[in-house]
Design a protein around this nucleic acid. Structure first.
Lengths: 134, 134
DNA sequence: CGGTATCCTGAAGGATACTG
DNA sequence: CAGTATCCTTCAGGATACCG
């Protein structure tokens, strides 16, 4: 995982607005990482880990997500090859979402992170109390 | 990892602006998860995985981060008990940042995610090409 | 050096309405 | 049902200036 980039060496006075683009170009994995670790991306991957879901079913499973963000998140994950979208030409429409093999790997990793966070939660809350009372 | 919450059952007409608060209250791990998976949080954890860093050293290591966001990210991670901050009372000031044992665990997990993303990158790019040419 | 304070903009994201 | 389109608000986050 390359975090740093030799920006200064090649473009000392480069327009700062372009840094995002530059680092994306030099470290394209950042973009993918942000997709799978994005607010709703994480929760969608975790939800799909157990089974396939339909759109509104998934919307209920991931509490708090708006239609817009769910659609957007699913499109991003589908484009990256993590989610398989199957639209059935029936009335009323039925679309099933599931994980691809690649998506399962991603979901397992973020799922592991999720489980670890739950286990670490007491320690985190204790650390916060210690930090705040100071 | 609890993703869904029985929102509808208890508060069918609850003010939507409060959903974030409600889910945070019902699923406090979401907040912690968002801290460690946040844009700069991920990169800071990965950078600190190899060794301790001073502030501006870290700023160079994590290319593209602003002073403000780095300070904010470090404070959040410190409060959650992931990062240890050691300020030395010398002139010029010197502050060292490193991972706590808890932070090392978090960093290992996100680091694993990072390495996986790098390995998966070719597959992702292939998936994107397939998706776009359609 | 290692920040904090302030201001400001662009992007993320929610609410609502509409469509195949 | 499964979205898309539109509008609008909030907030992440950058620029700048200043301080111990």
């Amino acid at each position: 995982m390359k975090v740093s980039t030799p920006l200064e060496a090649t473009a000392p006075a480069a327009p700062l607005a372009a840094i995002g683009d530059v680092t994306d170009r030099m470290c394209p994995s950042r973009g993918v990482l942000e997709h799978v670790t994005s607010r709703w991306g994480v929760l969608v991957l975790i939800a799909l880990r157990e089974r396939g879901y339909r759109f509104s079913e998934l919307r209920r499973a991931v509490a708090g997500v708006s239609e817009k963000m769910l659609a957007q998140t699913l499109q991003t994950l589908e484009r990256d090859g993590f989610v398989l979208r199957e639209a059935h030409p029936v009335i009323p429409p039925r679309v099933d979402y599931s994980l691809t093999p690649l998506g399962e790997q991603a979901a397992d990793l973020v799922g592991g992170l999720g489980r670890w966070v739950e286990r670490a939660l007491p320690a985190v809350e204790a650390a916060r109390r210690a930090y705040d009372s100071r």
